[in-house]
Design a protein around this nucleic acid. Structure first.
Lengths: 256, 256
DNA sequence: CGCTATTTGTGCGTATGTATC
DNA sequence: GGATACATACGCACAAATAGC
């Protein structure tokens, strides 16, 4: 179709893209060194023969990539001469830690004391023989009839005081612990894997035995990596998916 | 939890910030639920008594925060109703994705042109009928004999120039595109779900048909949410789990 | 100190292009 | 083809921050 050389980028007919590309070239080539000022917007307008709106849209792209900063009354200064993916911080919004709990309700089926045997100690990352409380229940989303998950929540026996409050209010268990014992969850480790739902769990979840499920295990850590709570949720495959998005964080122009 | 209380004084007199705040409130409050469409730009103009330019600037802020996506001819749809949580992912950011690829090798089985039908267009978030390139292959970790994933990579036909280079070097496909076409991946959306591995896929992965698998779909977005690449990986449940850790971060809260 | 010129930031109006239904 | 809705692009005016006189 078009005999363009393989290394040539597709030509965009968009004015502001063209201007942005030209400026990026001029920055990477060293025509506008790091620390120097770009020509003024008005200057670029006449230079490229486009409106100020277009120039600003082009510079906005440079700014989003962390190449320049703009300061009112000063101008647009070059901050970097290449898009550096190493230090570009990716902030991500996890869709559901608090929201997940707020919009679902946990119906508790069972609460029992357990002593951590070897495999459980592995999961909880605690020495074997420790006492824990295991809460088992079904989690429902909104007014859905079918449960979205079968939950097993393990609580360190040291925080057993919250036992009676679980399920009574729409607050995550770890928040209950944080409030009552004045501690803070410092980190969360999460593992997601797939699994087959066995006969017993399938009956509780109202799915066919042998169907696929998503197992989400979360470990809530306090100071010095101590395990405060571990939640294991088994989701039927067709009732839950885990999604998240990561965005490039635009460098804030403030050179604080 | 930095929800703005109604009594909080509004520090900014900027029109587009005010409009953006109002819209964010209406999204988080559920007036505009996730999946619904925002009023049209023209509609918002009359509603807030501002110009379209201002409305667009406000919506741009929502877009930068990952709250909405805009599609020409359709409208502005709500993607999420919460800007941020207390937790920020530390272990697996965009910067770590390249490493994942470097430590694995992709053996390509097939490369073909496809036209996006309705379901594929949904996955790729593109209009139906568009041309894409689909690369199918098996991904191996280290020197393992058994593949860790069956990969389907969809590449926008506009970036077909990288076709021959895939698999030849240990670099992610999206990096190839970024380099050759001078564009930047601005966001990544990821979805994880469970599924049953069918007969054909099971044979390629050397697993028993009907066993469980983890499906990880990643969508790499360029500017204005355009889809540049989509990668769908099907992992046998016993060969892969997705883990990450989040550490508490001081609430950003900075709306500035 | 105030004043002015410069430069980016905000905001308005309008027109046209393009994708979707 | 027409209606709708976002995308691009032009123009203009004024505000706010800065630097220099």
């Amino acid at each position: 179709m078009n005999a363009r050389s393989p290394s040539t980028p597709v030509a965009s007919q968009l004015q502001y893209v063209l201007v942005a590309q030209r400026l990026m070239q001029d920055i990477t080539s060293g025509r506008y060194p790091v620390g120097s000022l770009l020509p003024t917007e008005f200057n670029l307008c006449t230079q490229f023969g486009v409106s100020r709106h277009t120039v600003r849209e082009a510079i906005r792209r440079l700014q989003e990539r962390g190449l320049v900063t703009r300061r009112r009354g000063i101008g647009t200064s070059v901050k970097a001469n290449r898009v550096d993916t190493r230090y570009v911080q990716t902030s991500m919004a996890i869709s559901d830690l608090p929201r997940y709990v707020e919009e679902t309700r946990l119906v508790i089926a069972q609460t029992e004391d357990v002593i951590a045997d070897a495999p459980l100690a592995e999961l909880l990352q605690c020495p074997p023989g420790q006492r824990w409380i295991r809460v088992t229940g079904l989690r429902y989303a909104g007014r859905e009839k079918l449960p979205m998950a079968l939950s097993h929540i393990y609580i360190n026996a040291a925080y057993g005081g919250i036992r009676k409050r679980i399920g009574t209010i729409k607050v995550p268990v770890y928040t209950l612990i944080e409030r009552q014992y004045g501690i803070t969850i410092v980190a969360v480790e999460q593992e997601i894997r797939a699994g087959i739902i066995g006969a017993a769990d399938a009956r509780r979840l109202s799915v066919k035995p042998g169907s696929a499920g998503l197992v989400v295990s979360r470990r809530y850590c306090g100071d010095s990596d101590s395990t405060i709570e571990v939640a294991v949720n088994l989701h039927p495959a067709d009732r839950f998916s885990y999604s998240m998005s990561m965005r490039l964080q635009a460098a804030t122009g403030s050179d604080a």
